[in-house]
């Protein structure tokens, strides 16, 4: 699913965010990316959906060569991915249904399919009864569930989550993790950057630790390994 070889990233200001990183992630894996702020976690995550381009090395995501891709092919790479952020990034003037449907509208899906798929994912995240609400009427956890619904509505092979529980209390975080687990159980690969020691330690999934742009640890059933 992800094949990162010798990837480095040097920003224009000269900062080296990643230094010859090699990672291979198989289809169906659930991977945590951990590390302190500024360690290169965010760069790693943003490279996967080509918001950041590697300065050096090769990167294959979902069978597509991210480095040598034409600018015009980027949308098609992203259609195979679902992206989730810490701040949800919902559209405030659209309802729950509209926010989720938006992801299908912009890739020009047929209307009937949109309705069907939106209802299905709202069931998965448990928000079917709040479909008419606006984001401002929802709690943080509910908003993040809408964001997850939007990310998975196009059936991506890979879900990328950047600190999805960063703004949530522990109990709500666990609700979100339950949804991720279910999505993963259906065969979707999940790569999640997090600071949440409790979650990482309890989930017992693969953990990749990044420090100063290097991978310092890659364990199949790892723990967070830092003191929060």
């Amino acid at each position: 699913m992800i094949d990162m070889k010798d990837v480095s990233k040097v920003y224009e200001n000269g900062a080296m965010a990643l230094d010859h990183v090699n990672v291979h992630i198989d289809k169906g894996e659930f991977v945590f990316i951990v590390g302190a702020s500024g360690a290169g976690k965010s760069t790693f995550i943003r490279m996967l959906f080509r918001e950041v381009l590697p300065s050096d090395g090769s990167l294959i995501v979902n069978g597509q060569d991210v480095v040598h891709m034409d600018h015009s092919d980027v949308p098609y790479l992203r259609r195979g991915l679902g992206v989730i952020f810490q701040d949800y990034r919902l559209l405030p003037d659209k309802t729950v249904t509209e926010n989720v449907a938006f992801a299908m509208q912009v890739i020009e899906a047929p209307r009937r399919k949109i309705q069907h798929s939106v209802n299905a994912v709202l069931d998965i995240v448990g928000l079917r009864d709040k479909y008419k609400c606006f984001p401002s009427q929802l709690s943080g956890g509910e908003q993040q569930r809408v964001a997850i619904a939007r990310a998975i509505v196009n059936h991506p092979a890979l879900v990328i989550a950047d600190e999805p529980t960063g703004n949530l209390d522990p109990e709500t975080s666990w609700d979100i993790m339950d949804i991720f687990k279910r999505i993963n159980a259906d065969g979707t690969t999940i790569v999640m950057a997090t600071h949440d020691k409790g979650i990482v330690d309890a989930m017992k999934r693969r953990v990749i630790a990044i420090e100063d742009g290097h991978i310092v640890r890659d364990e199949a059933q790892g723990v967070y390994g830092y003191e929060n």
Partner: peptide
């Protein structure tokens, strides 16, 4: 930005 994340073309 969201349109770009979900794969809308330019």
């Amino acid at each position: 930005a969201i349109m770009k994340y979900v794969g809308a073309t330019d």
